Amino acid sequence: MSPILHGVIPAVPTPLNADGQPDTAKLVAFIRDLFDAGCQGVNLLGTTGEATSFDRGTRLQIMEAVANAGLAQRMMVGTGAAALADAVALTKAADTMGFAGALLLPPFYYTDVGDGALVQYVERLAELAGARTGRLYLYNIPQLTGLKYSPDVIERLTRNLGGVLAGIKDSSGDLPYAEAVAANFSQLAVFPSDEATLKDRARKKFAGCISASVNVFPHLACATYQSGVDTPDEIYNSMVGVRRALTRVPLVPAIKAALAWRREDESWKTMKLPLVPLSSAQLAQLHNGLAAAQANRHDSGEDRLAN
């Protein structure tokens, strides 16, 4: 099977044309830039990528464009959906196209199902998708899905799925939860969604991070991943400051607004409903926060993604 992913993995946004359809050429170019900046992997079609706002056909179109560019083998792609059949079809396609892994949301909307039903759902998906090379990664984001991959669910899935289950992305913000999963399930790659955890990742047994905010200045997170506790304060504090600025306004439109500024391309601001671009006041707040985070930085990689 594919190697288990690790390291700094940006959760990429999906650039859109004025009609709301994906600009796959721009997406492929951006992913290449992230790899050039030192990222070990990329997460396609997650929350930041507005995946659940796209129909199955559009998601497959985006996946195919990335795969045809020869990038899939270093990437995980979000394949979760409310309907099991959609999740199975997307997961099958991810495997066929050569993606290293499929990132699986729990089935959202019916939030009162118990752990047993959630285990059955994932096991059934794995059976029907029949992955040959790609692996499954669980996506824990209960504040949006209403469901949590509890330690009991994880234990049962690791026992029943074996090596097919490779890891978990935890976007809950519950660091003790992520630490407990990493400590108790050493066979899984555990990725918090906050790059601040990279500095102490070795002690906490994290495989890296999967984060939206590293899209803007990815080399900061890559430097922190490589240096760990020896990361210079200038780099670490700047990285944390950038994330703080991005998370003080709605995160997904903030990422796109920051990329519009960094890449001098206003089309990056286009959102897929129900998400909308930042207001003028939010944009001003974001720009002020990013400027403050970068004010004292002089590292040579500062403008690596400016174009």
Rank of each mutant, 00 (worst) to 15 (best):
A254G: 01
N296C: 13
Q187V: 07
A182M: 03
P13I: 14
I255R: 02
Q294F: 13
V216T: 03
L138Y: 14
E195C: 08
S300H: 06
A93S: 08
N17H: 15
K92S: 05
L84M: 05
L34T: 03
E302P: 11
L251D: 10
D299H: 11
L125R: 11
A69E: 02
H6Y: 06
S238E: 14
I62G: 10
A129C: 03
W261E: 14
N184D: 10
R304V: 08
L147Q: 12
L165Y: 14
T158L: 11
L305W: 01
T158K: 12
A207V: 02
P232L: 03
A93K: 13
A18Q: 00
K272R: 15
F30G: 08
G228R: 14
R297N: 14
S2P: 07
P232M: 01
F217A: 11
E179R: 15
A183S: 04
A102Y: 10
R201Y: 06
L125M: 08
T91R: 06
T79H: 10
R74F: 02
V12C: 08
Y149Q: 00
V252W: 00
F30A: 13
H219D: 07
P15S: 15
S267P: 03
I235Q: 11
C209I: 04
A85L: 02
I9N: 13
K92M: 06
K199R: 15
E179H: 13
L259P: 00
A94D: 04
P10M: 05
S227C: 13
N17C: 13
A102S: 08
L60D: 01
R203W: 11
A82I: 07
G101M: 09
A72E: 14
S300D: 12
D265I: 04
A93T: 07
S227K: 15
G162T: 02
R159S: 10
V190H: 10
S150H: 04
Q187D: 05
L27D: 13
M76A: 03
P176V: 15
N160D: 12
E195D: 11
N215D: 03
G289H: 01
K205F: 07
A258I: 01
D86A: 00
V113S: 03
A178T: 13
T91M: 09
L188K: 09
A223K: 11
G98W: 14
L220H: 04
L161F: 09
D23R: 09
V229L: 14
R262K: 06
F35I: 01
M75S: 08
S186E: 12
M271Y: 01
R59V: 02
N184V: 09
G98T: 14
D115N: 11
R59L: 08
L290I: 15
L104T: 06
G7Q: 05
L138S: 10
I210R: 12
A284Q: 14
V216Y: 02
M239G: 05
Q40A: 12
A81R: 00
L278M: 09
A117Y: 06
K272E: 07
A196K: 09
T133L: 04
K269H: 10
